[in-house]
């Protein structure tokens, strides 16, 4: 298992941080986006995730993979951000910028397009269905890993995944017709 040595660390060095950001950064950002549906929030959540991982590496005990551990931190962080979203929705000051600042209008348009229309459908799913679906498609977690991450029964994972796929297929049929 890659990065297994991290479970023995009590503090993280900068090289290890750069290494895990390079390997898992996109996964974490995408998961944060799947949960929050907001690019700026995804930026903030991702920053917090790696900062927490850096300062609290000693809490990683190797009981799960590093990826699952990071996804768990992402989920918890996203929920905390969503709880305080009420205060974040009103953005009165242009000086509050995300790490995506400085993009040209053209770059912004290109980068904000979904790579496939399937994402229009998936991102419109209710939270609980979207979450298990992306964990299955993108992160290839087992049912047991998902149940642990989401703190639900394994049977519930299977039910939600089944319903999520049904909803996507139904929406795809409606679009085609």
């Amino acid at each position: 298992m890659e990065h297994e040595f991290l479970k023995h660390m009590t503090t993280m060095d900068d090289a290890s941080l750069r290494d895990i950001m390079a390997q898992y950064g996109s996964d974490i950002w995408n998961y944060a986006y799947f949960l929050t549906k907001n690019r700026e929030l995804a930026d903030d959540v991702t920053q917090d995730v790696f900062i927490k991982a850096y300062y609290r590496i000693e809490t990683f005990r190797g009981q799960s993979s590093l990826k699952t551990w990071l996804l768990t931190i992402t989920r918890n962080t996203a929920f905390r951000y969503r709880r305080s979203t009420f205060f974040r929705k009103v953005n009165l000051f242009a000086s509050i910028t995300s790490i995506q600042s400085g993009r040209s209008a053209e770059t912004e348009y290109m980068e904000d397009r979904y790579v496939d229309d399937i994402w229009d459908v998936i991102m419109k799913l209710p939270d609980q269905y979207r979450e298990v679906l992306v964990l299955d498609i993108r992160y290839e977690l087992s049912t047991e890993e998902m149940a642990k991450l989401l703190n639900i029964a394994t049977g519930t994972v299977k039910s939600r995944l089944h319903r999520a796929r049904e909803k996507v297929e139904q929406n795809l049929k409606e679009v085609r017709s």
Binding site: R18, M21, A22, G25, S26, I28, W29, N30, Y33, F34, R39, A42, D43, T46, Q47, I99, Q100, M110, E111, D112, R113, Y114, V115, D116, I118, W119, I122, M123, V134, I137, R138
Partner: peptide, 16 residues
């Protein structure tokens, strides 16, 4: 759905 959701890489060197 294996790729994306966005065209570009949202977690780039600037983010790191």
């Amino acid at each position: 759905a294996r790729k994306g959701p966005f065209v570009g890489n949202s977690f780039d060197a600037r983010a790191r």
